[in-house]
Simulated assay, not measured.
Amino acid sequence: MSVKWEGIMPAITTKFNDDDTLDFNMFEINIKAQLDAGVHGIVLGGTLGEASTLLEEEKRSLTQVTVKMVEGKVPVMINIAEQSTKAAIKAANMAEEDGASGLMMLPPMRYKSSDRETVEYFKAVAKNTSLPIMVYNNPIDYKIEITNKMFDELLKFDNIEAVKESTRDVTNITRIKNRFGDRLKIMTGVDTIAFESLVLGADGWVAGLVCAFPEETVAIYELIKAGRIQDALEINRWFMPLLELDIVPELVQNIKLAEVYTGIGTENVRPPRLPLAGKKRKKVIKIIEDSLKTRPDLAKYKI
């Protein structure tokens, strides 16, 4: 299935049973909620998907099961976050075998590669897969920035098609558009500045709180696309306290707790992560409960 790098693509959380096995029953409930809300793609095994804790066979199972669940309605992407070029190529090949439509790809893990090494890493994978690639540019969390100068070289490969723009600098949207036009599609990757990024011309949003609030997230995108900026702004202002749960170290626990409140997830995380406790838990619960009390009636927006 071809990938249009646009719209809302949830960075899906990985669901676990109490015994730490993959919980495909709850996973399917969440995927159905995303599809019913009108998302435009599914991204597996990212930061929210607890990628660093997943075994190779679990990643493969997630991909295979998700492809069956979506039944061709939307493309399914799997994240590549590996320590070696060899492992990244292997992961890309397995994703293709398992039916993924595309790849989201981080720079090398652990080793802080130079610009030249980073470019060669992406190029090596691009040469060894036919799948389209979205480069995940998140120097805040992963300490390596893919600059526009580096993209000049990377875009010589036709299957490097998009960037998940997570630098936190919204002016990069304009810089990328000015430099590359539509050659490099932009998926904003930071929930708290997604509204601004979409208004400035980002093509879509790889979202986090969408895991718990798919309808509201899709509504913001659709309203902006329709030019109804004020309506989208109203929803975004309501959403902001929740969106801020995505930009802290405990984002996985926060969003999984929100999924519990909206009935499409559980709190189970894979150790060393643990569910929220104490003051942090009380604070997040208050944010979620207060937001649910004032949840917007999307029917009035007639999207």
Rank of each mutant, 00 (worst) to 15 (best):
M1D: 04
K4T: 14
E6W: 06
E6Q: 15
P10N: 07
T13A: 03
D18C: 08
E28I: 09
I29P: 00
I31G: 05
I31E: 04
Q34E: 13
L35K: 04
L35A: 05
D36L: 02
A37G: 01
L44Y: 07
T47M: 09
L48F: 09
G49R: 04
G49Q: 01
G49E: 00
L54C: 07
L55Q: 12
E56H: 11
E56D: 12
T63M: 05
V65R: 15
K68S: 14
V70R: 04
Q83V: 15
K90P: 01
A91K: 08
A91I: 01
A91N: 05
E96K: 15
E97H: 11
D98F: 11
G99Y: 06
A100M: 03
A100N: 02
M104G: 10
M109N: 10
K112T: 13
S113Y: 01
S114F: 04
S114L: 03
R116N: 05
T118N: 11
V119L: 03
Y121F: 15
A126V: 11
P132G: 08
P132I: 06
Y142N: 14
I146Y: 09
N148L: 14
K149P: 01
E153D: 13
L154W: 01
L154K: 09
L154T: 07
F157I: 04
F157L: 09
F157P: 04
F157H: 11
D158R: 08
D158H: 11
E161R: 12
A162L: 07
A162Y: 04
S166L: 04
D169E: 11
V170P: 03
N172V: 07
I173H: 02
T174G: 12
R175F: 13
R175E: 11
D182F: 01
R183F: 03
L184D: 08
K185T: 07
I186T: 08
T188N: 13
V190W: 05
D191M: 03
D191Q: 03
I193E: 10
F195P: 11
S197R: 05
L198D: 09
G201I: 13
G204F: 12
W205S: 10
W205H: 09
G208Y: 00
C211M: 10
T217F: 08
T217Y: 02
V218Y: 05
A219E: 07
I220A: 05
L223E: 06
L223W: 06
A226M: 13
R228D: 14
M240I: 14
D246F: 10
V248M: 00
N254T: 05
N254R: 00
I255Y: 00
A258I: 00
A258M: 15
I264P: 04
G265Y: 07
T266N: 14
T266V: 12
N268F: 03
N268D: 00
K280G: 01
K280L: 11
R281Y: 10
E289Q: 12
E289V: 15
S291Q: 06
T294G: 02
T294S: 12
